[in-house]
């Protein structure tokens, strides 16, 4: 009796998203895939480059979504993992002549280890405390990359220039187009991996922790292990995004990876819908294009315009793009019935 006496139900920090609702239906997925495959044939190189960046940021937002939407842990430090991935690739390619494609898995592994280790002290922290800890990581990273004794490898404040790869096997396509398809394949592979991860035993463990940590541990979930694992996986995926980003931009420098990047990724997640993986790409589109739109509307007040646009989005759809998708689904359902 006494155990039931003081029932305190804590609202989970992240609203529960049912598992099925975290992904798209097969039909919609194929449609999106077809569009992504055909698109580059019709547009200019610069647009292809922007589409590549969209995929890359989408991947980084997805990584945050696995962490926050999946396991309920909050991070403002994603820019640090992104930086480590980018620098791993840049250093391997430029100092050791490693093939760019090979650097991706290496960056993933390095970042996994980094994230997993960082997840250890983070275990004791939650909510605002975790936000502060990850924030510290994000602010420290550019400074660490500038350290003198690393300068030989990192190029210090100057950074490193990365060579853009040509299309292999003499394929008749531009560097930009090749990189786009290369990125697309990597992103799709990781997306499928993430969807399956969240559907697996581990994914269920993540979500049990997200919804109620104490209940999860009572159910026999190894909370510490899975929380650090979530950090590791998220860092690994972010790291791969960073690698791709370094190749696409052909340049890494400490000040490309400040807290601003981490905040952008966070906004991307909210706009896309926390915990809804396909929303990541919508969120990425928001953080890439809306600042440009704001600049277009008013140069002097671009920050304010951006803020107003952001407010409009969160008023209209407080649950992000996921809410639009759900509304669309209901609407389609109604049409079918009639």
């Amino acid at each position: 009796m006494s155990a039931a006496e003081d029932v305190v139900t804590e609202a989970p920090a992240v609203e529960a998203v049912p598992k099925r609702a975290m992904t798209l239906g097969t039909g919609t997925s194929l449609l999106v895939l077809a569009a992504l495959l055909i698109m580059p044939v019709f547009v200019k190189n610069f647009i292809i480059f922007q589409m590549t960046m969209l995929l890359i940021y989408g991947l980084a937002v997805l990584a945050l979504n696995i962490l926050t939407g999946g396991s309920g842990q909050f991070s403002l430090g994603q820019s640090a993992f992104y930086a480590v991935g980018a620098y791993t690739t840049a250093v391997l390619m430029e100092h050791f002549n490693v093939n760019y494609a090979l650097t991706l898995p290496i960056a993933g592994v390095v970042c996994f280890a980094f994230g997993f280790l960082f997840g250890q002290p983070a275990l004791r922290l939650s909510g605002v405390y975790l936000a502060l800890a990850t924030f510290a990581l994000a602010t420290a990273m550019p400074q660490l990359l500038k350290l003198n004794f690393l300068e030989h490898w990192t190029g210090g404040v100057q950074g490193l220039v990365v060579t853009k790869p040509d299309a292999p096997f003499g394929l008749p396509m531009s560097q930009d187009m090749w990189l786009y398809y290369f990125t697309l394949v990597v992103v799709i592979a990781i997306y499928i991996f993430s969807v399956n991860l969240l559907r697996s035993r581990s994914g269920r463990a993540f979500m049990a922790i997200r919804d109620n940590e104490i209940a999860a541990s009572a159910m026999g979930v190894d909370v510490a292990l899975y929380k650090t694992l979530a950090f590791g996986v998220s860092a690994a995926v972010t790291g791969v995004a960073g690698s791709l980003g370094a190749i696409a931009v052909q340049f890494v420098a400490p000040d490309s990876y400040t807290i601003t990047l981490a905040i952008s990724l966070f906004l991307g997640m909210v706009v896309g819908g926390v915990g809804w993986l396909p929303g990541s790409i919508v969120g990425a589109a928001f953080i890439i294009f809306v600042p440009n739109i704001a600049e277009g509307i008013s140069k002097g007040l671009s920050g304010a315009v951006f803020g107003v646009l952001l407010f409009l989005v969160i008023y209209l759809v407080p649950h992000g793009a996921r809410q639009v998708a759900i509304l669309g689904q209901q609407f389609a359902g109604k049409l079918r019935k009639n």
Binding site: A13, V305, P318
Partner: peptide, 30 residues
């Protein structure tokens, strides 16, 4: 600005703070 978000998720409110940050900073600059 924030009363309408009272029922929205916490993270959405945090995004609202960031939006407010951008608005104030940019307006003061202008």
């Amino acid at each position: 600005l924030f009363k309408p978000l009272a029922k929205a998720p916490i993270l959405t409110n945090v995004a609202g703070f960031i939006a407010l940050f951008a608005i104030i900073n940019s307006s003061a600059g202008l």
